[in-house]
Each structure stands twice: as C-alpha cells, then as structure tokens.
Nucleic acid binder design. Structure first.
Lengths: 203, 203
DNA sequence: CCAATATATACACTGAGTGCGAACTTGCAG
DNA sequence: CTGCAAGTTCGCACTCAGTGTATATATTGG
C-alpha cells in the first residue's frame, strides 16, 4: 500500500472522526461542512471528494464493517446447508452492529434514530444488503425460485431489523440480545424449514 | 368542508400534478422548486407550506392511499383471527400499490427506482407502516410477546416488499402478481402458523 | 360589515453540493 | 536527481433547497 493510499485513508478517517465528534458536541444540524473541514484540517471542497454528502459521513464506519461482513460471507465451509449459511450471515451482521458500539458507535446510533432522513438512509443500506443476500442465495441454491429467495431474504433481514429494534428498546444486554436473535431465527426458520431446497447441502 | 379546505386540497393536488408532469417531461434534477411553483401558479415559498421537501411531493398520492389503507385496517370483522387480519392488510396494500399505477403512477415508480435518495424515502415509509402493523398486532393479541410481534411484522412487510420486487422485475401481469402474493404468504405463514397466539380468534 | 384568523407572498438569508481550473504532491522512468 | 505524468487538494463562483420573518390578502364567524 503506497503512501498515497495511506494518506487518503488517514484523511478519510480524520474527516469522519472530526464530523462525529462535532455532531456529538453541538448536534448534526448545528454542524456545517465548513466546521468539519476546519476540524479535520482540509478544505470544505475536499470533504466532498471523500463523502458524497454530509449524511454519508455518519455511515463511514458502518459501511466499513458491512464490507467486511460481505467478504466473510463469501467463503463458506463445504457441506454447509444454505440455511446454516444464512444463520451465519445473520449472526455476523448482528455482531458487526454490536461491535460498532465503540468510540463513536453510540453517537451514530443516536443520530440515525432521531433524524428521519438518516433513518431512511440506514434502511436503504439494509435493503442493499438484502439484495446482496438474494444474490448469494440464488448462487448457493440454483434450483431455488427467485420469488422464494426474495421472500426468504426479506424475512431474514426483517428478523434482523426486529432484533435491532427490540434491543434498542431494551438496552443492549448481551443475554437479552442473544435471546432475541434466537427467538427471531426460530420464528423465521419454522417457515423457512419447509423450503426443501434450503435443507439440501451443496457440494 | 369549507371553502378554505377545498382550496387547500386543490392547491395541493395542483402542485403535485405540476411537479410530476415536469419530472416526467424534463427529469427530477432538472426541475427546480421555482419551476414547479410557476407551473402550479403559486409562489416558491408556498410550495413548502404544502410539502416539506422536493422529495415528498413524489409520494403525495402514495401517502393518500396509504392513509386510506390504515383507515380500512382499523375496522375489522369480529371473530377474525390475527393471521387473517394480517392477510387482509397485505392484500389491501398490494392492491393500493397496484391502483397507484394510474395517471402519474408509472412516473412515480420510475423516479423512485432510479433515485437512491427516493428509494431510501420509500423504504422509510415502508418501515413506518411496519411500525404501524406492530402496534395493531400487539393491540389485537395482547398476549403476544413484543419481539414476536416485531418479527412477524418484519416478515410480513418483507414478504410484501418481495412481491413488489418480483413484480417489478416481471411486469405487473395480474396472474403473476397473484401467484407471487400466494407464494410469499405461504412461505411466511408456514413460519407464522407455529405461533399459537396468532391462530386464536379475538372477541 | 367587522374583527379574528388562516393563508399567500416577497425578501433576505444559510448551507449543501457541483464544476472548473490552478497549484501542489506523489510515483515513476530515465 | 530530475523532470514528467497522474492524482489530489484547493479556492472560487455558482445553483438550488429550505427557513425565518414581516406584510398583504382572503376566509370565517359574529
């Protein structure tokens, strides 16, 4: 990795960190791009060569983790059933979200919850992830009907969203979270278990 | 209904119609609020007393129909099981979406599909509807755990989204749509059928 | 017809986001 | 080390969405 790329990554992180810090200190609306740029020691114009909009900077860290999850999903032990794969994906994502509760994680979550426009963007990201799951699913089980794959992905992501919603309302106690995941998966699986293609291992 | 309210509704519709027409003619980005205001014969400032943002005007008609659906969901025949209620809601919504394919419906759908920001807003509306379903569900079955209700709503709305996605890809042929709905519901229900609270009729 | 109230508009302003060309930095080849 | 090509930052000028406010105009109820 050359100097150029390292610098870029550093600048990107500096901008994101400065933005999140300012958002936390004085609020989202009250922070301008100019403020962020100044705090990160770049020109206002440069901000937009790293993030296409002010809203996107909130998702900087989340997007990084999401990319990791997608990588991880790619390689999968042989003999694993599609259903098991799906369970693994869901757990990886929940874990990724929980892990995001680091330095600025709490601020991100709070911002997203209280700004409808950020909520909308978060949902869009979930939807994109869902599309990804559909692709992966049809790849794993070529004999699976497209409509079935779409429904299954929807149910899975819906379940995930349910867990997040539930945890938000009841705090992120690990035991409660685990229980929520188990319950959600149990419910969804009872329906999913009846799709034969999902329970046949692939070579 | 007084003159004042009639006029307001008329202006609202005029603005929405002008906006959709201009979006169709020259594109979304290429149409400014000033253009819309001029076409609807109001001042630019007035636009914002009817719609909070340029994006919201795209959803004007959809929101009207969604409100109708919520009304319809409210009164429900006695003895109907929660599961039957849910099926009724899903069908009503699918129907509402299909009905929106009127004068400007096609333009709306096209706009939403090709602008990520509009997609995000559409998903937010779906999510809000999902919240509504959760509320209604816990109201209908007080003995239903919250987490279960959230998962069920998620699965239902996920299924709905799946149907829409599928229909979009395969055209809106009525037969195909009906089949998609049946398949989606069948899949979801196989899971949902195992939740006892859902199959007990309420007084 | 009058007064209270709701609505429309004009005006001025902030801030997000874009296009462009100039200045600068890095990577690489000779 | 040196200079050239490519990538990156920056300043500047601009458009447009969206807001606050004060003023004018229309509607309603009495």
């Amino acid at each position: 990795m050359g100097l150029r790329e390292r610098k870029k990554l550093h600048t990107r992180r500096a901008i994101a960190a400065a933005a999140l810090r300012l958002f936390a200190e004085r609020g989202y609306e009250e922070t301008t791009i100019a403020d962020i740029a100044q705090a990160a020691d770049v020109s206002p114009r440069t901000f937009f060569s790293y993030f296409p909009s002010k809203e996107d900077v909130v998702f900087a860290e989340i997007d990084e983790r999401l990319a990791e999850v997608r990588e991880g999903v790619a390689q999968r032990p042989p003999g694993e059933t599609p259903l098991e794969s799906m369970r693994r994906i869901v757990f990886a994502m929940i874990e990724a979200i929980a892990a995001a509760h680091g330095e600025y994680g709490a601020i991100q979550v709070q911002l997203i919850l209280e700004r409808p426009s950020l909520q909308a963007r978060a949902l869009k990201r979930m939807n994109d992830t869902e599309q990804h799951v559909v692709e992966r699913l049809t790849e794993l089980s070529p004999d699976l009907d497209e409509i079935d794959a779409v429904v299954i992905a929807g149910a899975l992501v819906g379940g995930m969203k349910a867990v997040i919603t539930h945890c938000r309302a009841h705090g992120y106690a690990p035991a409660a979270t685990r229980e929520a995941v188990d319950r959600a998966l149990a419910i969804v699986e009872h329906g999913l278990g009846s799709v034969p293609a999902l329970n046949r291992p692939v070579p």
